[in-house]
């Protein structure tokens, strides 16, 4: 039956309202997890706080499991779920630039909004920077359009590349994540920080 709006079980008029409600949930969870604090986020990269790793991977795994189980029960048609297309070159270079932005600015876009929501000035400045960065991209687009569109592989899935079922991929990721969580917890003990 799901996804409800693409299947026209709920009218498309509701889509933006649902986006707003889902956004509230998203913002609430981000803030509760501590993602409104750039020092907590940056702690990931110095080992003193690995909350990013824990929340990010637990979230991705929960959603993965949810999608597969929903599909198994016939609650959702995975063919109608958006899978972001892979453009290998631009994904890697874009990711590298984002990684640099992450460690320099201490936020990613979603977390900067949740920081700004509770009055963090640095979060607001980061958002200002986002607008400038997007503007640079838009104005420079003619120069990078060829690279941006190159290496298109379509909306491929890891399970298709590896030739194993999505369930097995998920189990492997869960095992990898638990190992990383353990390492993260060890790192927090190894490089402890006072409360900030």
């Amino acid at each position: 039956m799901g996804p409800l709006i693409p299947q026209e079980i709920i009218g498309a008029d509701w889509n933006l309202f649902i986006a707003f409600v889902i956004g509230i949930g998203f913002g609430f969870v981000l803030e509760q997890a501590g993602f409104s604090s750039s020092r907590k986020l940056a702690g990931m990269f110095y080992g003193y706080d690995t909350v990013v790793l824990k929340v990010f991977f637990t979230g991705a795994i929960t959603a993965m499991l949810g999608l597969l189980f929903f599909s198994l029960f016939g609650w959702i048609d995975l063919n109608l779920i958006y899978v972001n297309p892979t453009f290998l070159g631009s994904a890697i270079v874009g990711g590298i630039i984002m990684g640099a932005g992450f460690i320099v600015g201490g936020f990613c876009p979603g977390t900067s909004f949740s920081a700004a929501a509770i009055g963090k000035i640095d979060g607001m400045v980061f958002i200002g920077g986002l607008f400038i960065g997007v503007f640079f991209f838009a104005e420079g687009y003619p120069l990078i359009e060829d690279f941006y569109m190159s290496g298109s592989m379509g909306p491929i899935k890891v399970s298709e590349v590896l030739g194993i079922s999505g369930g097995v991929v998920t189990l492997l990721i869960i095992i990898a994540a638990l190992i990383m969580f353990k390492l993260g917890e060890l790192a927090e003990k190894r490089w402890p920080r006072a409360e900030y």
Partner: peptide, 16 residues
């Protein structure tokens, strides 16, 4: 998470 992961890895994917 591990239990659900094992279950989902064992059951055949729903491709219907």
């Amino acid at each position: 998470l591990v239990l659900l992961g094992v279950v989902i890895a064992m059951v055949p994917e729903n491709t219907t």
